[in-house]
């Protein structure tokens, strides 16, 4: 049998393409890596060569320093690797995020990386890329996940700020993507007061601003003279891990909020001690995921990581060929 399609094989390092001799989003150092987006679990340091969008490479350099790989190549237009045509297409997930399309003589494979079809003003929107094999994430692949309008979630945050003017609102948001998305949603909702950010968010917020993503008046969430009252009524963004640190002790009676797709499930929110769960996701929900498969109508659907059981069941009910790759090393939502 001829090789009808580019081959992708799950390996411990990540998804491997023997024809092109590269890995996609490898979780261990490899000679050649193609990286969909800059979240740390997909974009690791120490590869021989990395190909990614310019913004993904720049964000990796912010994380790991400029020498995070032996060689870097900006994915720009169509590139031929080992006889395969490789191209990157917007995924709508975070700034710089891309789907990777690998085309052989008789067919195409699209690796989605993480993606969302909800409008995300902080980056280019997801584009449909026709394919024979769709290799998709399945982070929120359960029919209970139908993420609401994020603007309605932000309205709940602002209502809480108005209701508790004496308390600080600490919003947990991952440093790359979610934090800027929340800030932009706040600005869209007409909130133009200063937003305070944890130090771990500063570099990436600055980078977004430099890339032309307007975030408004951001200030460091530091207590100049140790006065808790300074943050009364303020919105403060921090990586969720900061809530466990002594850092959280500086705020007056804080309302703990968390912006995540997981916040749809009450038990998840309560486990984290969240008082104000905000369902804001940068992944496809169940509806978007099944819609994407229906619309692209690939011959086969492969599932990289997440809740593949339910998606496999859906594909079976729809009479669609599907298989799980069970790739390990990707977190549900990276910190």
């Amino acid at each position: 049998m001829l090789t009808p399609l580019p081959t992708l094989i799950p390996r411990p390092e990540g998804l491997y393409c023997p024809q092109g001799n590269f890995f996609i989003d490898p979780v261990r150092p490899v000679p050649r890596a193609l990286v969909t987006h800059a979240h740390a679990d997909h974009a690791r340091a120490g590869h021989g060569a990395v190909m990614a969008t310019r913004q993904t490479l720049e964000i990796m350099a912010l994380h790991y320093g400029p020498d995070f790989a032996g060689a870097q190549q900006v994915a720009d237009g169509q590139v031929t690797i080992g006889g395969l045509d490789v191209s990157f297409h917007p995924a709508g997930h975070v700034l710089g995020s891309a789907q990777i399309c690998i085309a052989g003589p008789s067919g195409r494979v699209v690796v989605t990386g993480d993606y969302t079809r909800s409008p995300n003003p902080a980056c280019a929107p997801w584009e449909p890329v026709a394919c024979d094999i769709l290799v998709t994430e399945a982070t929120f692949a359960l029919p209970v996940f139908r993420h609401p309008d994020p603007q309605a979630e932000i309205a709940r945050l602002l209502a809480s700020v108005a209701a508790f003017p004496e308390r600080a609102h600490l919003v947990g948001a991952y440093a790359l993507g979610k934090a800027q998305r929340v800030i932009m949603l706040l600005r869209e909702a007409g909130y133009d007061a200063p937003i305070y950010i944890h130090g771990a968010l500063a570099k990436l917020c600055d980078y977004h601003i430099a890339q032309g993503v307007p975030l408004g008046d951001l200030r460091p969430a530091t207590v100049a003279r140790g006065r808790k009252g300074d943050f009364a009524g303020a919105v403060v963004l921090a990586p969720p891990s900061a809530f466990a640190a002594t850092w959280a002790q500086r705020f007056p009676d804080p309302v703990i909020a968390f912006a995540s797709g997981w916040m749809m499930v009450r038990a998840r929110a309560r486990q984290r001690g969240v008082e104000l769960p905000l369902v804001i996701s940068d992944h496809v929900d169940w509806g978007q995921l099944t819609q994407t498969i229906s619309e692209l109508d690939p011959a086969e659907t492969w599932i990289t990581h997440g809740r593949e059981d339910a998606l496999l069941r859906w594909c079976a009910l729809e009479g669609r060929a599907a298989r799980p790759l069970r790739l390990v090393g990707y977190e549900d939502e990276p910190e």
């Binding site: 029919p143 996940f145 499930v265 009450r266 339910a310």
Partner: peptide, 24 residues
Amino acid sequence: RVDAELFALSYDFVGDLAETIALI
């Protein structure tokens, strides 16, 4: 209304019957 297996997987994840039904 919902495939039994999809419901079972969802209920397993959510952990509360009323909440699972409300969402699904």
